[in-house]
């Protein structure tokens, strides 16, 4: 069953007289218990997409159109009170620097109980404490963390606290926006592994935003490749990463060195993301694509559905011009 459906979502930023189309016409379905990874270069609109779904964008400068239905409610038009009820309880988010949100002058335990008691009123202090200790244990932190100040913890531990906070009400959908990017290899590996185990236990659906393909490969089952505000390719991780169809996905994968096997030639994608304030009618990737044809510059490619609900937005997918 689909837990969230995003239909034709577009986000336009109005900045200094320009209209920047940060996300344009994105449709995405997230099934229950999925772990979907959203990958792309910096500036491709991944974070904007997440912020639009959570309705955290500043309304004065960002204009979101489309529909985001979450359990039957459209998040974009929901009244603020109703939305407040969903946040934390159903929808939780962890940002890259979530740990910076911790107040330096209060103990971790106190900050956690404060947040908990906003939603869960009429619960005794002792009960809250035992619940918080349980949460800390869930993310593999020792009990003593409850009585420590943030400066006494390392970055990895603080990020774990942030993850514990997001899990406190057993949310249905958890959004991680580069939540492990700033961490060390060992810490990142451990947190990812813990996340996957927790999800299976609690039945959480996860949306993970990252620029690191290998993180997606090791912790997600679905992936959506985003470029310049559009989703170019989506499907199961084992389909998309093993048999990429879109030239952009291929390029991204080619630029990542591999650990085993021969040292094949790694190659970057030449060029950079186009100016999104200029309207583009054709394929957004055409400028950097080595297989671009005339039609790519004029016509916007439609989603092409391959077996396994593997969707690709490319004129060349399935076409004779693109056999290799």
């Amino acid at each position: 069953m689909a837990i969230m459906e995003v239909k034709n979502l577009s986000v336009i930023y109005h900045a200094s007289g320009k209209r920047v189309a940060a996300v344009s016409d994105v449709s995405l379905t997230i099934e229950e218990r999925d772990a979907i990874g959203i990958v792309g270069e910096s500036g491709s609109g991944k974070s904007t997409l997440a912020m639009a779904i959570l309705r955290l964008l500043p309304e004065r400068i960002a204009q979101a159109q489309g529909e985001v239905s979450f359990e039957g409610a459209d998040l974009l038009t929901l009244p603020a009170e109703k939305l407040n009820q969903l946040r934390w309880k159903q929808l939780a988010v962890v940002f890259q620097k979530s740990m910076n949100a911790l107040s330096p002058v209060h103990k971790i335990g106190m900050q956690m109980t404060d947040v908990y008691r906003i939603k869960e009123t009429g619960i005794s202090k002792r009960e809250t404490r035992s619940k918080m200790l349980q949460l800390l244990d869930m993310v593999n932190l020792p009990e003593r963390v409850y009585d420590l100040y943030p400066h006494e913890l390392s970055g990895g531990m603080m990020q774990r606290v942030a993850i514990a906070l997001s899990l406190m009400h057993n949310p249905k959908l958890l959004i991680l926006d580069e939540a492990t990017t700033a961490l060390d290899v060992v810490t990142q590996g451990q947190i990812l592994e813990e996340m996957v185990a927790l999800e299976q236990k609690l039945g959480i659906t996860r949306m993970m935003i990252t620029h690191d393909m290998s993180v997606v490969a090791s912790s997600c089952n679905k992936v959506a490749v985003m470029y310049a505000g559009r989703i170019l390719e989506t499907g199961l991780v084992k389909d998309v990463l093993a048999n990429p169809v879109h030239p952009y996905t291929k390029g991204l994968l080619k630029s990542i060195p591999s650990f085993t096997g021969e040292k094949r030639n790694i190659r970057g994608i030449p060029g950079s993301i186009p100016d999104l304030s200029v309207p583009n009618d054709g394929c957004i990737f055409a400028e950097r694509c080595e297989h671009a044809m005339d039609s790519c510059l004029i016509e916007k490619p439609q989603d092409m559905v391959l077996p396994g609900n593997h969707r690709v937005a490319c004129h060349l997918a399935g076409g004779a011009a693109y056999v290799s």
């Binding site: 290899v185 060992v186 590996g189 451990q190 290998s214 090791s218 994968l253």
Partner: peptide
């Protein structure tokens, strides 16, 4: 612990 494409 390092995430790799091969883990797929």
């Amino acid at each position: 612990n390092s995430a790799m494409l091969e883990s797929l």
